[in-house]
Design a protein around this nucleic acid. Structure first.
Lengths: 106, 106
DNA sequence: TGTTCATATGATTATGTGTTCATATGTTAA
DNA sequence: TTAACATATGAACACATAATCATATGAACA
């Protein structure tokens, strides 16, 4: 059983700076447009325009949000000719979303 | 090995409403004051004043943020006389934070 | 080179949000 | 009851942020 009380393993408070980084990370997940983008590219990489079309949103809006995702290393970028393809950076990202989904759906 | 490509298990996009709820949930984690509160009460329940003292912040500020945590069912509340004790609602919360920490610390 | 297409970026605007101050609510004990 | 204490709440303000429009950058190809 995993859910028994564990008084030993006391979660020590990380440095303030780490806590700020942590909040900043979750802030990125805290926007529905970015969440939708992440779902959209979770299976396969997609170009900016394709994402915009899939979500029926402005190319500019998507581009702005992709930048946020990029800056936080949540997406991977690959250029091929004129288009730039985005995909999720690693399984980490998926796992964070899944954890959140669990909470929301329960 | 876990990290091989799995083209079958395509993460289906949940309903828009769920995605909004998901973003809203992460929004709650996206504030350093709330993150610090959650760390503060992760080991043991604490009263509002104690939390405020621990974080050297106004009682009012803590109270406002505790309300947000309450509304999102992330904390548990117990009254004992004049004081009200807060603790994390379940291990879920801890796990979400830990996932985030993993990403931040890597 | 000039044109077209895909993406990125800057400025603006509207909206959301965290903190503070002042005060209200509610509990305990005299 | 009243006083003292703990917590919650409302209003105000300062600040952050997402979407939009217009435009810039950069690649491909005639």
């Amino acid at each position: 059983m995993e859910n028994k009380v564990t008084p030993d393993k006391n979660t020590e408070m990380p440095d303030l700076e780490v806590l700020f980084d942590l909040a900043d990370l979750f802030k990125v997940f805290g926007d529905s447009t970015r969440i939708r983008i992440m779902f959209t590219i979770s299976d396969r990489e997609m170009s900016v325009l394709n994402i915009a079309e899939a979500l029926k949103m402005e190319q500019s809006t998507i581009s702005h949000q992709l930048r946020v995702l990029r800056q936080n290393k949540l997406v991977r970028v690959r250029r091929e000719g004129k288009q730039i393809y985005y995909s999720l950076d690693d399984d980490h990202v998926k796992k964070i979303i899944e954890m959140g989904l669990d909470h929301v759906l329960e």
